[in-house]
């Protein structure tokens, strides 16, 4: 578990991002301790995905800082940013598998790009990682379009962990899956993160998934983190916004804002 005195693997301060007049992130502060799984929850359109894209370097924030192990990635040159990116694994919401490549090449893509391994070695590693997410070696020869939603998610997870990243991001890992498959994917995520000793950040609005994956949970609301604490306390935080969200209540501050 995390040590409070350790430098956070991820430290975000005063992160702001607006699209035109619409302010999406309005001063996000967040720390993620080493080897900790942080789940960010929040309603649709509250900026969870924007926060994740800023952390991944896919969006440039308007202000603030994002530090990985004490180094601000927003002020790095291209080569330094690439070195940081090589430490990251990402599971996209819809898998984002490359249609034009068979499954094994999808899984091995990061290995080949980052570590220049041979084709034979990459294939062997892909089969090994597919096994870790419960898929047979024969799946490696299929195309992404031939897989079910759950299998695509597993392949996407295999691709995310293939290069043994020490920081992992998960975007809505259980969206579009039935509850059982959702639990299976969550279990695989927890296993992979623990086995690799990675630091993980997941965003979701699935409370069951948040409790299964997270050591800690933060709630984003109106562009700010309104609560952060252990996952075990999630269902009884004493924070009206969080409690309404986690219990799915119709009445509460979030609905009051919608009515205005």
């Amino acid at each position: 578990m995390s040590n409070a005195l350790e430098t956070p693997t991820i430290r975000i301060r005063g992160l702001r991002k607006a699209f035109g007049d619409k302010v999406v992130l309005d001063g996000i502060d967040l720390d993620v301790a080493p080897r900790t799984s942080m789940v960010v929850i929040g309603g649709s359109g509250t900026g969870k995905s924007v926060l994740l894209k800023c952390m991944l370097g896919l969006l440039q924030p308007d202000a603030g800082s994002i530090e990985f192990d004490g180094q601000d990635v927003l002020r790095m040159d291209r080569r330094e940013a690439e070195a940081v990116r090589a430490r990251i694994g990402m599971l996209f919401q819809n898998g984002a598998l490359f249609d034009s490549l068979p499954v094994w090449e999808n899984v091995a893509f990061g290995l080949v790009a980052r570590h220049k391994v041979s084709k034979r070695e990459a294939r062997a590693r892909a089969v090994e990682v597919l096994a870790q997410v419960g898929l047979a070696a024969t799946v490696g020869d299929l195309w992404p379009a031939e897989l079910s939603g759950g299998m695509q998610k597993r392949v996407a997870l295999a691709r995310a962990i293939a290069a043994r990243p020490d920081i992992m991001f998960f975007d809505e890992p259980t969206t579009g899956l039935d509850p059982i498959m959702g639990a299976v994917i969550d279990g695989l995520i927890v296993d992979c993160v623990r086995r690799l000793g990675s630091t993980a950040v997941a965003i979701t609005h699935d409370m069951a998934s948040a409790r299964r994956i997270g050591d800690r949970v933060a709630m984003i609301h109106r562009g700010r983190i309104v609560w952060e604490g252990p996952a075990t306390a999630l269902m009884d935080t004493g924070n009206a916004v969080v409690d309404q969200f986690t219990h799915g209540s119709r009445e509460g501050p979030i609905q009051m804002e919608l009515r205005r």
Binding site: L56, G57, L58, F98
Partner: peptide, 20 residues
Amino acid sequence: AELGTMRVTDQIDALTTLST
């Protein structure tokens, strides 16, 4: 059509996260 589909299904972002 191919690149557009890759864009809207996050495949282009996925390339970036895979150091490409």
